[in-house]
Design a protein around this nucleic acid. Structure first.
Lengths: 130, 130
DNA sequence: TTATCTGCAAACATTTTGCAGCGAG
DNA sequence: CTCGCTGCAAAATGTTTGCAGATAA
């Protein structure tokens, strides 16, 4: 069904080494830096096929980019990203999972998935020149 | 600050008459059908400025379009979107806001903003042919 | 061998922007 | 009268696709 090509394993390997979401373009650049040249179109095609297989999670950012992350079925968690420096902290939402399922059920929805992303300013970025 | 032009009121009037999300392009076409010609760029600019003012909610569809709806509820709230038919329900997260702020503070982050989107399958989409 | 994958560049879709002219205040 | 707003078309952005050649099986 799917051939195991150099490019495809390069993409999946890169994904395995990452914990958070990356855009297709970021993946493309990352692979380029590693010396594993992969065409941008191939990155898109590969990520898309992985997403179709449910091997990665896809998410759309506020500015219209698709971001991908290896599907960590176990140990779901969320991120807290600094708007200033991009630093990220991993967090776990004890109540959020339950809240999502409950709210969904209350509206007659099933198979609930949730996206929770937090952004803020970390200690170092909180007091810039202002 | 903002001038009340024919185009701007055409857009806000159209929004007032709608209950659900529409894309900028749909709004553009709707206005055209009404005979109230408004340039596509103006529709984008107007919707964007309304969004900045918090007068409309913005949401990105799975295929990358931005959709807008008049902000019914005052104050911050979230959405539950059906992956099958796109139907949306407004929800409020009593605990989520507090949880976000608290988690942020625990990591030394300030000025927390959060993105929470829930997707699921609504009652009618739950049992398709698959 | 051969059907699939890849790379490139051109095509696409959505959104943004530059600029001259219009018009609200 | 003055700026901000508008419309148009061109540009930018992110993603998809056609096709010839490479390649896994």
């Amino acid at each position: 069904m799917q051939r195991m090509t150099r490019q495809r394993s390069a993409v999946t390997d890169a994904l395995d080494g990452l914990e958070d979401f990356r855009s297709a373009q970021q993946m493309h650049e990352l692979l380029r830096e590693r010396g594993e040249g992969v065409g941008l179109a191939t990155v898109y095609r590969t990520l898309q096929s992985l997403a179709d297989d449910g091997a990665v999670d896809v998410l759309r950012t506020a500015d219209g980019e698709s971001v991908y992350r290896k599907c960590a079925r176990t140990g779901h968690h969320h991120h807290l990203v600094c708007r200033g420096c991009g630093r990220t902290a991993e967090i776990e939402g004890p109540g959020v999972e339950a809240w999502a399922a409950q709210v969904g059920a209350a509206h007659g929805f099933d198979a609930i998935e949730h996206t929770v992303e937090l952004t803020g300013l970390c200690g170092e970025c909180r007091t810039p020149e202002r």
